[in-house]
Write a protein that binds this DNA or RNA. Structure first.
Length: 678
RNA sequence: GCCGAGGUAGCUCAGCUGGUUAGAGCGCAUGAUUCAUAAUCAUGAGGUCGGCGGUUCAAGCCCGCCUCUCGGUACCA
C-alpha cells in the first residue's frame, strides 16, 4: 500500500427531504467520525467532509405537495440535519450543501470539462412535454392509468398500486400534474456517461487492485461489472438543480447522482484554498464512508467520472456498511419507522455517547443488524454504567478517600502490577489495529476491555482491605488504577468524545494526546485530580417504554393511513363499455411455475368454452398444487399476450390490498364453468 | 431465474492460507466481595458451526446439491 501523507474522508451526503435517523448514523456518520477523530488524535492531516444533497425530483415533489419552494424544503431539512449532527458530535471540518453557489460552479465546471473532452455521448429521445407549463415533465410529474393493473394515479416511473416500474410513455391517458393538461411527446437531447467505456479500467482497478475492499463492497461491484455497464444519463429536464452549462440546454439540469458526489469536492473548495492538495495529490488517501445503497455510485460511477476528468485521485477504500433495522422492521422515512436523531437528542439529553456506543458496538458492518431499545438500555446499564463508568468512579472515589485527590507515588511493582501495566499497551494496539481496518465494533469492544482490566485489577488487589493492613501497597494500586483511567480517557476519545472530555476534566488532563496512549504513566505522582461525578446514568424501563410507545403509535398511524389509502373510484363508464368485457367463471385444471421467474404461474383454465392457458403473476402468494381445482373469474376476451415465451389468453381476476396481497375473486358457490359474470 | 452478501451458543458477533477438547461480549446459574450507580470479580451451564452428500489422515473453513434472510436484476396484464 502507498504511504499516504494525508487523508480525505467523505461521508455520504444525506438527502435533504427528511431528518437523519439512526440508520444513517450507524452506517455512515458514526464510523466515519470515529475514524477521523482517531487520525486527528494521531496528529495526522485529515479533512472530514459532509453536506446535504439538495437536488433531485423527490425534493421538488415534496415542495409541490406542501405548497412551498424546493429551496424552502432543503433549507428546513439542511438546518435540522446540520444542527443535529453538530449536537451529536459528528466532527465535520465542513458541513456544506449542494444548493450553494460554489457547488453549482464546481459541478458545472466538472461537467464542462468532461463535455469538452468528449467524455459524454449525446442522445435524443422523445419525452413528455407540458405545453401549458412550457417544460419537460419528469416521470414523477406524469400520472395516468397503469397499463398493468389499470389503476389510475400511476406515476411515470412507477405504479404505486402494483409496484411495477414503468416508462412514462407506457401510461394510458397521461396527465401532467403541473398543469393538468395532456402532455405531448417532444424530442429532447441528453448527455450520457458511457460507463461501458470505462469497464476494462474498472475491472482491473477494483477486481484486481482492490481485493482488500470489504467483501460486500467487492462482491457488489463485481456483480455490476459482470452484468454489463450501460451509459447513464447525466442530464435531465428539470428546473431544480445545476443547470447544464452548454448552449441549447435550457431547462436541463445535472442529474442528481452526477452532482451529489461532486458536492464532496465543492465542500472541500469551500473549506480551504488548498483543496486541490486533498483531491489531486497522489499522496492523499481518499476514503468514502457510505451505506450499501451507495456502493455502485461510489465504486463505479463516481470513479468513472473522476477518471474521465483525469486530474483527480480515486478512492483508496470505500468502507460501506449494511443496513440497520429497528425493532425487527426496516427503517422507513415514509412510514415514520425510525429513531430520528433530532428527537433522540431531545429525549435523551447529553446522552450522545450512549447512542454512539450502541450504534458502534452493534454496527451493521458485515450484515444487516437490528436496533432495539431493550438492547440500547442493556448496553448502557450493563456496559457503559457497570463496566466503564463504575471502574472510573470507584478509582476516583478511592483516590479522594485515601489521598485527597492527589495521585500517589507507587512503591514497588510486583509481577501482577507489571502484567497489568503491560496489558494496557496490548489493548491499545489491538484497538488501533481494528480502527485502521474499519472494524469499529471490534475496536470499541477492545477499548471496553481496558475498563474490564481495571475492574479486575481492583477486585484482585482489594485496596479497601489493604488500606487497613498495608497502606503503602495501596499507593501502588491506586497509582496503577489511575493510569488505567487516564488511558481510558484517551482510548475512548474517538468513540465517546463527550465522556472523554468529562473524564479528562475530572482527572485534570487538558487536551488529549494520543502519543501518551498506552503509556504506563500518564498521571504523575503529585498530580491533583478533581471531584468525580458519574459519567453515565442508568436508563430506567420507563424511558424505554416511552420510545416503544412512540413506535407503536407509528404502527397504528400506518394502519389507519393504509385503510384510508383505498384508491379513489375511476371515471364513470357506460353499461355498453362494461359489457365489452367478457368475464366468466372457470376452474384451474393445471398450474405450474414458469421456469426462471419469481412471480409467474402458468395456469390451464377450463372456461366452459374451452381450456386455455393463462400466465398470472401470483406465484409469490400461491403454490401451484394448492390452487388446482379452484374456481376463479376470468376475463376471456382480453387480447392474448406473450409472456416468457408462453401465450397468455386472458386474465384471472384478483383482489389486491394496499400491501400488495392477492386474493382470488371467485364465485361464492360452485357454479358451472363458463357462467357469465356481470 | 441470474448475480452478490449472509445463515456459528438465548442475543450480537470473532474464527487467518483446512489441523489438538469451536471462541468473545451481553444475558442466565452458582460462588466470592462491598471501594463503587445492587455495580464488580471468579466459576459454570449452553452450540449436530442452516441441511444433505463429497474431497482429505483431518472441514465451521474446500467442492456439489438443497434451504432460509437481505440487496441487485429479469419477470407481474
Amino acid at each position: 500500500m502507498t504511504n499516504f501523507k494525508r487523508t480525505l474522508v467523505t461521508s455520504a451526503l444525506p438527502y435533504a427531504n427528511g431528518p437523519v435517523h439512526i440508520g444513517h448514523l450507524a452506517g455512515v456518520y458514526v464510523p466515519a467520525d470515529i475514524y477521523v477523530r482517531y487520525l486527528r488524535l494521531k496528529g495526522e492531516d485529515v479533512l472530514f467532509i459532509g453536506g446535504s444533497d439538495e437536488h433531485g425530483v423527490p425534493i421538488t415533489l415534496k415542495a409541490r405537495n406542501e405548497g412551498v419552494t424546493p429551496q424552502d424544503i432543503v433549507d428546513k431539512y439542511h438546518t435540522i440535519i446540520k444542527k443535529s449532527f453538530k449536537e451529536f458530535g459528528i466532527s465535520f471540518d465542513i458541513y456544506s450543501r449542494t444548493s450553494n453557489k460554489i457547488h453549482h460552479e464546481t459541478a458545472s465546471g466538472f461537467f464542462r470539462t468532461l463535455y469538452d473532452k468528449g467524455e459524454f455521448i449525446e442522445k435524443e429521445t422523445e419525452q413528455y412535454y407540458d405545453q401549458e407549463a412550457g417544460q419537460f415533465l419528469a416521470d414523477r410529474y406524469i400520472t395516468g392509468t397503469c397499463p398493468h393493473c389499470n389503476k389510475d394515479g400511476a406515476y411515470g416511473d412507477q405504479c404505486e398500486s402494483c409496484g411495477t416500474s414503468l416508462n412514462a410513455t407506457d401510461l394510458i391517458n397521461p396527465k401532467s400534474t403541473i398543469s393538468g393538461s395532456v402532455p405531448t411527446l417532444k424530442a429532447t437531447k441528453h448527455w450520457y456517461l458511457p460507463l461501458d467505456k470505462h469497464e476494462p479500467f474498472l475491472r482491473k482497478w477494483i477486481l484486481e487492485d482492490h481485493k482488500e475492499w470489504k467483501s460486500n463492497v467487492y462482491g457488489q461491484c463485481k456483480s455490476w461489472i459482470d452484468l454489463g455497464l450501460q451509459p447513464r444519463a447525466v442530464s435531465r429536464d428539470l428546473d431544480w438543480g445545476v443547470p447544464i452549462p452548454v448552449e441549447g440546454a435550457e431547462g436541463k439540469v445535472l442529474y442528481v447522482w452526477f452532482d451529489a458526489p461532486i458536492g464532496y469536492i465543492s465542500a472541500t473548495r469551500e473549506l480551504t484554498p488548498d483543496w486541490e492538495k486533498y483531491w489531486k495529490d497522489p499522496e492523499t488517501r481518499l476514503l468514502h464512508f457510505i451505506g450499501k445503497d451507495n456502493i455502485v455510485f461510489h465504486c463505479i460511477v463516481f470513479p468513472s467520472m473522476l477518471k474521465a476528468e483525469g486530474s483527480y485521485n480515486l478512492p483508496d477504500n470505500v468502507p460501506a456498511n449494511e443496513f440497520l433495522n429497528l425493532e425487527g422492521d426496516k427503517i422507513s422515512t415514509s412510514r415514520n419507522w425510525a429513531v430520528w436523531l433530532h428527537e433522540y437528542l431531545q429525549d435523551f439529553k447529553d446522552k450522545q455517547d450512549v447512542l454512539r456506543y450502541v450504534l458502534t458496538s452493534n454496527a451493521p458492518e458485515t450484515k444487516d443488524n437490528d436496533f432495539t431499545w431493550k438492547d440500547f438500555q442493556a448496553r448502557n446499564n450493563n456496559e457503559l454504567v457497570a463496566i466503564y463508568g463504575n471502574f472510573v468512579n470507584r478509582t476516583l472515589v478511592l483516590t479522594h478517600k485515601y489521598y485527597d485527590g492527589i495521585v500517589p507515588a507507587p512503591e514497588s511493582f510486583n509481577s501482577f502490577d507489571n502484567e497489568t501495566l503491560d496489558a494496557i499497551k496490548g489493548i491499545v494496539d489491538k484497538c488501533e489495529d481494528a480502527i485502521k481496518n474499519f472494524k469499529f465494533r471490534e475496536a470499541v469492544k477492545e477499548a471496553m476491555n481496558l475498563a474490564r482490566l481495571g475492574n479486575k485489577y481492583l477486585a484482585d488487589t482489594e485496596p479497601w482491605k489493604l488500606i487497613k493492613t498495608d497502606a503503602e501497597r495501596v499507593k501502588t494500586i491506586m497509582y496503577i488504577s489511575l493510569q488505567i483511567t487516564a488511558n481510558l480517557s484517551l482510548l475512548m476519545e474517538p468513540f465517546l468524545p463527550f465522556t472523554s472530555k468529562k473524564l479528562r476534566e475530572m482527572i485534570n488532563l487538558t487536551e488529549p494526546e494520543w502519543s501518551l496512549c498506552g503509556l504506563k504513566e500518564i498521571l504523575k505522582p503529585g498530580h491533583a485530580i478533581n471531584q468525580p461525578e458519574l459519567m453515565f446514568q442508568k436508563i430506567e424501563d420507563q424511558e424505554i417504554e416511552v420510545q416503544l410507545d412512540k413506535l407503536l403509535q407509528s404502527k397504528k398511524d400506518n394502519e389507519v393511513s393504509s385503510v384510508k389509502a383505498a384508491t379513489p373510484a375511476k371515471e364513470n363508464i357506460s353499461f355498453e363499455e362494461f359489457t365489452k368485457m367478457d368475464i366468466r367463471t372457470g376452474t384451474i385444471v393445471e398450474a405450474e411455475k414458469v421456469a426462471k421467474t419469481k412471480k409467474l404461474l402458468r395456469l390451464k383454465i377450463d372456461t366452459g368454452i374451452d381450456q386455455r392457458t393463462v400466465v398470472s403473476g401470483i406465484a409469490e402468494f400461491f403454490r401451484p398444487e394448492e390452487i388446482i381445482g379452484r374456481q376463479v373469474s376470468i376475463l376471456v376476451n382480453l387480447a392474448p399476450r406473450n409472456l416468457k415465451g408462453i401465450e397468455s389468453q386472458g386474465m384471472i381476476l384478483m383482489a389486491e390490498d394496499a400491501d400488495g396481497k392477492l386474493v382470488f375473486v371467485s364465485p361464492a358457490q360452485k357454479i358451472a364453468n363458463g357462467s357469465i359474470v356481470s
